[in-house]
Design a protein around this nucleic acid. Sequence first.
RNA 1: GGCGCCAUCGUCUAGAGGUUAGGACAACGGGUUUUCAACCCGUAAGCCGGAGUUCAAUUCUCCGUGGCGCUACCA
Length: 491
Amino acid sequence: MSVRVRYAPSPTGSPHVGNLRTAIYDWLFARKEGGKFITRLEDTDRDPARYKPEYIQDIENSLHYLGITPDEWWVSGGPCAPYVQSERLELYQHAAEELIEKGLAYRCYCTEERLKEMRDRQQRQGLPTGYDRRCRYLSKEDHEKYHREGLSSVVRLAVPTEGQTTYHDLVYGDITFENKLIDDQVLLKSNGWPTYHLAVVVDDHHMGITHVIRGEDWMPSTPKQILLYNALGWETPLWVHVPLIVGNDKKKLSKRHGSTQFIEFIREGYLPEALFNFLVLLGWSAGEENVEILRKEEILQRFSLNGITNHPAVFDYDKLKWMNGEYIRSASTERLTELCIPYMAEARLISGLSPTQEERSFLQSIMPLLVERMKVLSEVASLADYFYKPPAEYDEKGGRKWLTGQSAREIVSTILAAITEHNREWTVQAAEEIVNNLAEAMGCSRGPIIHTIRISVTGRTVGPGLFDILAVIGREETMRRLNTALNGIQD
RNA sequence: GGCGCCAUCGUCUAGAGGUUAGGACAACGGGUUUUCAACCCGUAAGCCGGAGUUCAAUUCUCCGUGGCGCUACCA
């Protein structure tokens, strides 16, 4: 049977890097096995506080960005359409009815208050919490009576009260749970919508899912779903739980650790190949080879479920940054230029998202000077601004050191004079020549001259090679900026 | 509380019943450079604890400890 795996996000949040990592595993496994990668929207939670339709766009964008377009999903359809749970409600309701008829599920009329009271009491007494199954043993007459009275009800699974449920996990091995400890799970909510457990089982079955790949936090609910498969008389898929991604405090990754939503990383300027590479490596390793920088194709070649680790992985923002820097440095200037346009436009350094040809080629020409110290694309504007406009202010320490006092005044005016005298072509070599001659004439090393010019022209103490900068900025503008610096020198 | 999972440098990980326990990020030191970055070289840093099995265990088993997850009409 050919492999079918699914990524099943819920539009109750913008997709998390952890979710996307399992989506990547899904995609890799499907590609590796010549199977299908399916994506299904699990939108059965309609609480307006959580459900936000705009997250659907985030899901689509994230998948596209990573280049792992599903073979079947709500965007392009497929043989098992619809791929949105809210459009499949009858399926779940039928399944629930069928279970009630077979006596494997039952209507429960217990109120929210009673359930809460019960839980509180259990907690106080140090007992395991769970539904006490009162409605499971209601007489037929009572059921009919409540039904006539129009009491609102949910449908619960009648979980076996003895025995064990064991399953084989492809990552974790054999896992066993005592049935008597498993709650009579709600299958259908009182509004007629399914809970996750029912919907996921029904859909995975009807969509022919062969491997359920999901986060380790789902392990405790696996036996509940297996019991459901059994009750429905369906064959279970293979289970593949993958370790959690955690923050530096080892707790489930969340906002307080830093960015967690995939689209935040897109916005910050992480390249798709860096994100793909980094995420795959959080919980998977190529084994003995143990290499770090791997392109999608190289990963695909090596990928296997066997390489998935079974312990949580701390999300290391530093390492991601390093990796992104690696990919930035290996990207072509043309591509980088295109990718940086949005950030340049946002900083108003260029006219907009569709810059003129001149703007584009200028950006491209300075890109090589920027790329060495760029870790994320969003840094580009702050790295490049002095190529576009004079410094608004000088670095405080640098200004104090190089642009203060009588000697600074002398140095700047000497430099200015030398540049004024220069009347040949203005190039990187010419700039260097001027500085060399100046150093000789002044009987000092190039250092102080270079530092003084750098701070005057860029406002910074760090950056690309000075002569490259001067060549780009041009003779006139260099002189203008030196003049401004000269006039601003305090004693 | 109950149930489940997990445990190699700070972090991601490789590893085998006998290894100088390997690599990468980060850190630190040095080189290069006009600065920063990049690059090169180097340093430091680890098998949670206790029993058992074995000639030998960090590796296998058990117990402990610790961490995490789940325990909803959320997924």
